[in-house]
Design a protein around this nucleic acid. Structure first.
Length: 988
RNA sequence: GCCCUGGUGGUGGAAUUGGUAGACACGCAGGACUUAAAAUCCUGUGUCUUCACGGACGUACGGGUUCAAGUCCCGUCUGGGGUACCA
């Protein structure tokens, strides 16, 4: 019987589904193990070979843990709210729900083919009302809580309101908005309902606040920082600008320190923890007040005004030691004091600068990152120690949103201040010795303080201490910690997301009650914003709370549903709670979480944040969502390109400049294009291209001319579908018929008459036409081969380009395994006693595989299986006692073939729960050891010696060996090092 | 710029704690079986040198520590990913 993977795989997939083999038990005496994959967004392109990489790895662990006697939870679901379905809806009018469901059906079919051991009864979809009911419920929990700094956790908002009623807010220590004014209990009681609501809002964990957001006019939505690339929206590539908007936000900043501390308890990679640390961006320093002093030319009226409002500019610095190096103070253009500090003669320039800075889009800011701009206000502050007058400038290198929006500029020891000072000719005062200030600033935090009064002679560390104590003693400021982390905007002006469960009555937002959930996403006639810029939900007809009050019209962001889905899998059908407390306590946290590193700072920060809040509020017992996390590497695709002659070099027909005609379609083969780029084309070749171009274009427009053909000739690379290219040779016919505009395409080909495409390795994506689906491989070689091959490709965490070069080796291995059981169509397993050699091979393999899985080194286990089967083939082993345990070892990797052979061995139960074999070290002991003998560390020969010899006996044996004597040629070695059971080295 | 990762044959990669560098697989070359192909099997395959035995070199580059370095330390170059006027 041949290895017929097609039937075997189909049969077993059906068996697992029919028998619900992998359903996790909620009541089990077994220890639990929770293996989670980052669930996919079901895109229209379907699953590509990169998706299963992580899924296969987690499936191996899940199956392994089942063999090891764990009750395994290994679920899968879909992150099914998202922009692409909505974009598609806008273009076609098809409801995103339909698109999403279709895509999910495709994903499911593809996933099923690979033989994953998911518990499909627990599938979740974030766009399902049964699911998002609880996303909304969690939102309300956040809406109804505040962060108490005294207890250092989130607490119900009712506590806070009681406190207000009893004592006002004087004793409240909370993470809240900065501009909260203090009030007494009496004042609180006298507030109107609206006023009370506004006050409480400043404390809520989910709150409505004014925030600068990344606004994308074309998409009509707010984007998260991680949705923007180079100042353009990641999806669509539209410009993004900064805009002040009322937005629902999450007070994640309250958790900054705990999110940072929690990292130490996690078994995550250093790079990932580092990425989170950088994102949170803790910096310790000092706040410091600079007294504003009158500029001689400042009119007295202005000075009076100044007195009324504020006397100081507060800055934040991490370098209080450099205080004597301050040569100017810079404010962000948005700083509230800008207007008041500007002297009349500077007003024009300042106003112009502020307006320009405000209107500058993110893209321009990024593009001009090295362009230094700024204006002086004309006012001065006083140095807190020297009393010297210091000018106040405005510069957009200072960010309004960080620190106090003002910096003390120390150009000698900060590179940004340095460039600014150089640009505007401001003084550079050296206060830490050691740098060359002619060339650049000296930013290092080491050296001796100079020109610094009471700090002179101290090193930076000591100076820092002393400066802080002096600043604090003089009441100028105090030690302070700043975080880069910003509160997370939680609303989008979009349709395809969870409605925010809020309605407005007299302009006051109220949360729905639990019994009113879910607030179902209403139907709309179009998926676009309304004419007056309201989000699409404003289009919904008769969609009002109690037929009277407006609901919130924005929806939740993409990360809402994914921030808690790991909890829903524990109890996916519960209608009374997001998860039953008992079940949540049983499954606790994810033991192993596998997914892509692109979620390092987004999803993984939010899911930790929500876990901590739910823990604070007493809903779950865990503090962190996932104990161990692995980032699988990206599988890159190999894209192909054609090189199209640019139309810019043609001029249109004389009759009408704007005449729309089809563009010429002339494609240069790769080598010709390379020559063109290097300007190595011969006149003959150029003429040939020109002639073909003329012929091609004349069919479209008889009246055209070239515009300086030879100077202007250039090409642009265009992605071409890899499926119509083989070995970089283009299938020209397929290409011509692939698009209407290519029907007259002309190819300038290589000497061998082929059109050669360019290629590049890059991210696999639909838009690059380089997606390879796992389907073809599964069809041609079977999914066991696919599973083994994806693991064999290299370390899980490493990115690698997809290629199928080695797949025959892996497939051959499975065939070879099959032949251990079947020879000449006969099943030939015997019950004979195994030999010592066979047992050694088996137990060596068991040991290696167990170790490999535990350290997630799946590529090496595949090699180890190959070695094992090679050895057993050489030994002609067909013994049940050897092959049966081997099947169990292999079953996590290649579940179908092992199930089948397991059944052939006479088992009636699935192999999935068979106990994983244990290593018997006794079989691994060698009788003899092959000692490498080296001289000065260089290997000379090897010597086989009995394993029973002691270290001393080994030395004696080696020294009296003929080869040693020959090597030493009468010399006496200075030293002989014997590492017992390892190596012998002689030093001469 | 900063942070994180890598750099090993023609290729993917192995070497878990400093102890025989290149496991396993692909590719390539030669051979067996076959009318032929596929499939399968066998042999060889880091580089240089030698008829051969053997020898020399070799883990991006330059140094160092060590009896012994792909592995540890210092410096340089370079691929990939993340991130940024964060004071």
């Amino acid at each position: 019987m041949e290895y017929n993977f097609k039937d075997i795989e189909a049969n077993w997939q059906k068996f697992w589904a029919d028998n619900k083999t992998f359903a996790a038990k909620d009541d089990s005496a077994k220890e639990k193990y929770y293996v989670l994959d980052m669930f996919p967004y079901p895109s229209g392109a379907g699953l590509h070979v990169g998706h299963p990489l992580g899924y296969i790895a987690s499936d191996i662990v899940a199956r392994f843990k089942r063999h090891k006697g764990f009750n395994v939870l290994h679920p899968m679901g879909y992150d099914s709210f998202g922009l692409p379905a909505e974009q598609y809806a806008i273009q076609t009018g098809q409801h995103p729900k339909i698109t999403t469901e279709n895509n999910i059906a495709v994903y499911r079919k593809q996933l099923d083919k690979i033989g994953f051991s998911f518990d499909w009864d627990r599938e979740v979809r974030t766009s399902n009302p049964d699911y998002y009911k609880w996303t909304q419920w969690i939102f309300i929990q956040l809406f109804n809580s505040w962060y108490n700094k005294n207890t250092n956790k989130a607490e119900p908002i009712s506590n806070l309101i009681s406190a207000f009623e009893a004592h006002g807010n004087a004793n409240i220590q909370a993470h809240c908005d900065d501009d909260v004014k203090s009030f007494t209990a009496e004042q609180w009681k006298a507030f109107t309902e609206k006023e009370q609501s506004d006050v409480v809002m400043a404390y809520r964990m989910a709150y409505l606040g004014e925030a600068y957001v990344n606004w994308c006019p074309q998409l009509g939505t707010v984007l998260a920082n991680d949705e923007i690339k180079d100042g353009l929206s990641e999806r669509g590539g539209y410009p993004v600008e900064r805009k002040l908007m009322k937005q629902w936000s999450m007070r994640i900043t309250a958790y900054a320190q705990r999110l940072l501390d929690g990292l130490d308890t996690l078994d995550w990679t250093d790079s990932l923890k580092e990425a989170q640390r950088n994102w949170i961006g803790k910096s310790e320093g000092t706040s410091l007040k600079f007294k504003i002093v009158r500029h001689p030319e400042l009119v007295s009226g202005s000075q009076e005004m100044l007195k009324q409002v504020q006397h100081d500019i507060e800055v934040f610095t991490t370098r209080p030691d450099t205080i004597f190096g301050v040569s100017f103070v810079t404010l962000a253009p948005e700083h509230e004091l800008v207007n008041r500090l500007t002297t009349p003669e500077n007003k024009l320039a300042v106003d112009a600068y502020v307006t320009q800075a405000k209107n500058r889009s993110e893209r321009e800011r990024q593009a001009d990152i090295n362009k230094i701009t700024g204006v002086p206000t004309g006012s001065f502050v006083e140095h807190p120690f020297s009393g010297k007058q210091i000018p106040i400038w405005i510069g957009d290198y200072v960010l309004a949103g960080y620190g106090t929006g003002a910096v003390m500029a120390v150009p000698a020891h900060d590179s940004r201040d340095y460039s600014f000072a150089k640009q505007f000719g401001l003084p550079i005062l050296e206060v830490v010795a050691g740098g060359d200030l002619e060339k650049e600033s000296y930013d290092a935090k080491e050296g001796t303080l100079i020109n610094s009064d009471f700090l002179n002679g101290l090193d930076v560390k000591a100076a820092m201490k002393k400066a802080i104590s002096q600043i604090e003693a003089n009441g100028l400021g105090k030690g302070k910690v700043n975080f880069r982390l910003r509160d997370a905007v939680f609303g989008r002006q979009r349709y395809w997301g969870e409605p925010i469960p809020i309605y407005y009555k007299n302009d006051i937002p109220y949360a729905l009650s639990d019994s009113e959930l879910p607030l179902v996403l209403p139907e709309v006639d179009k998926y676009l914003p309304t004419e007056d810029g309201e989000p699409p939900l404003a289009r919904a007809k008769d969609w009002k709370y109690q037929n009277e009050f407006d609901y919130e019209h924005s929806t939740m962001p993409g990360w809402a549903g994914s921030s808690w889905y790991f909890l829903r899998y524990m109890d996916p059908h519960n209608g009374l709670a997001f998860a039953d407390k008992k079940l949540a306590d049983y499954w606790k946290q994810v033991d192993l979480y596998i997914g892509g590193s692109e979620h390092a700072t987004g999803h993984l920060l939010y899911v930790r944040f929500w876990t901590k809040i739910l823990n604070d509020l007493g809903h779950i017992a865990i503090n962190e969502p996932a104990k161990k996390l692995i980032n699988q590497g990206m599988i890159q695709g190999r894209s192909n390109f054609v090189y199209r002659l640019s139309p810019a070099m043609f001029v249109w027909g004389q009759n009408d400049e704007n005449e729309k005609v089809n563009l010429p379609v002339i494609f240069l083969s790769k080598n010709i294009n390379d020559k063109l780029k290097k300007k190595e084309l011969t006149q003959f070749e150029l003429d040939n291209i020109k002639e073909k171009a003329i012929t091609n274009f004349k069919t479209l427009n008889p009246n055209f001319e070239f515009l300086n053909f030879e100077e202007n000739i250039y090409t642009s690379a265009i992605h071409v579908d890899v499926n119509i290219v083989s070995n970089d040779i283009l299938d020209e016919e397929a290409f011509i018929s692939s698009r209407e505009e290519y029907k007259n395409a002309v190819f300038i080909k290589e000497d061998d008459d082929n059109y050669i495409c360019g290629h590049e390795v890059e991210k696999m994506s639909k838009s690059k036409y380089n997606v390879v689906t796992p389907d073809d491989i599964a069809e041609k070689f079977g999914s066991d081969t696919l599973r083994l091959y994806e693991m064999f490709l290299g370390p899980l965490e490493q990115s690698k380009p997809w290629n199928t070069n080695g797949i025959t080796g892996v497939h051959g291995f499975l065939k070879k395994l099959w032949r251990l059981f079947y020879q000449n169509d006969a099943f030939t397993i015997t019950h004979d006693e195994p030999t010592k050699a066979e047992l050694k091979t088996l137990h060596k393999t068991i040991k290696k595989i167990t170790e490999d899985i535990e350290r997630f080194s799946f590529n090496t286990s595949v090699s180890n299986f190959m070695i094992c089967v090679n050895e057993l083939t050489d030994l002609k082993c067909n013994k049940k006692e050897i092959l049966e345990p081997l099947l169990i070892c292999l079953s996590p990797y290649a579940p179908h073939i092992t199930e089948e052979l397991w059944k052939q061995l006479g088992h009636t139960e699935s192999i999935a729960f068979a106990q994983f074999p244990l290593v018997n070290e006794a079989f691994l002991i060698d009788d003899s050891i092959n000692y490498p003998v080296s001289v000065n560390g260089k290997l000379k020969f090897t010597l086989e010696l009995p394993a029973t010899l002691t270290k001393e006996e080994v030395e004696v044996e080696v020294m009296k060996n003929e080869q040693t004597i020959k090597l030493l040629a009468g010399q006496q070695p200075k030293k002989v090092i014997v590492v017992h059971k390892k190596i012998v080295n002689m030093v001469v």
